[in-house]
Amino acid sequence: MIDYFKKNVDFLSRITILLIIVAGMSVINPPAFLNWNNLSTVMFQQAPFTILMSFGMTMAIITKGIDKSMASIVVLASMLSGSYFKNGNLAMGFLIALAVGAAAGLLNGTLITRVGVAPFIATYGTDFIALGLAYVVCAGRYIYDFPANFRVITNGCFIPSVPNIALVTMIIFILLWFLTRKTIFGRSMYLAGFNVDATILSGIDAKKVVTVVYTINGLLAALVGVLYMARLNAADPNISGNLCLDSIAASLIGGTSFGGGKGSVSNAVIGALIIVFIRNGMNIMNISTNWQQAVVGFVIIFSVFYEMAIGRLTKKRMG
C-alpha cells in the first residue's frame, strides 16, 4: 500500500489538485456548483471534448512533440463532413471526417519524422492550412439543424442515463489505455519518447511509431469534430477556439512532461478535468471569459514549475 503511494506520488498529487479545485468550488458557491444540472453539463457535455483532445495531445507530448493542429482538424473535418450528416448519410460523413483526420495526421507525422521539421512548426503549418481550408469550405454558409439520428450520437443514451458522448469517451479511453500500456506499439511510443536514438538502435522503427501517433491524433480530432457538430447541432469554423490551448494545458497539468516519455492517457483525463473545472469555476464566479484564456496560460506555466518541484521531490526519494 505504502509502496503504491510512493510509486504513484506524482499521479496521486494530480488527482489531489483536481479534488482541491472541486472542493474549493463546492465551498465557494455550493448552490451554483453542486447541482446536478451544472455537474452533468460539465461532466457529459464539456469534459468529453477536452478529454478526447487531451488524449491526442498527451501522446504527442510523450513522443517529445506537440500537436498544434488538432483543433483545426476538428473544424476542417466537421466542415467537410457536415453536409453528409445533414442529409442523413452517416456512413459517408464518418468516412470523410476520419479520412480528413487521418490525412492531416499523416502529413504531420511525415513532416516531422521524414522531413525533420520541428513538431511545433510542422503542426503549426498544418493548423494554419487546415483552418484556412475550413473557412474556404464554409464560405460563409453555416450548416445547422442536423437530423435526429445524427444528434443521437452525443445526446442519446445507449445505456440508460449515461449520454452516448460519455460512453464514447469511455470506450476511446479504454482502447487508448490498452494500446499505449499493453501493446508493443505503446511500449515503442514510450521508448521513443524517452530516448529516440536508443530506440532506433534497439531495432524499433521509431519514425513509424511517431507517424502513427500523429495519425491517431488526426483521427481523434476528426471524431471530436463529428461529436462536437452533433452536440452543437451546427457546423461552425469558429468553434476551434479553446481546444488547442486547453488540451496542451490539460496534458501538462495532468502530469505529462514536455521532456518526453512521461505521462499517460489516465493523466490526460485528470488534466482535462482540472481544466474543465477551472473554466466552470470561473463561469460560476462570473469571471469574464476574457480572463479565462490568460488563466489557462498561467496553468501551463504553473504545471512546468509543479513538474520541477515534483521531480526534485521524487529524486530525493530515489537517492
Partner: peptide, 16 residues
C-alpha cells in the same frame, strides 16, 4: 545516450 532508457525500468530495457 544510445544504449539505455535511463528513466525506464530494468526489465523494460531488457526486452526493448
Amino acid at each position: 545516450a544510445e544504449g539505455l532508457h535511463l528513466l525506464m525500468p530494468i526489465k523494460e530495457n531488457i526486452v526493448a
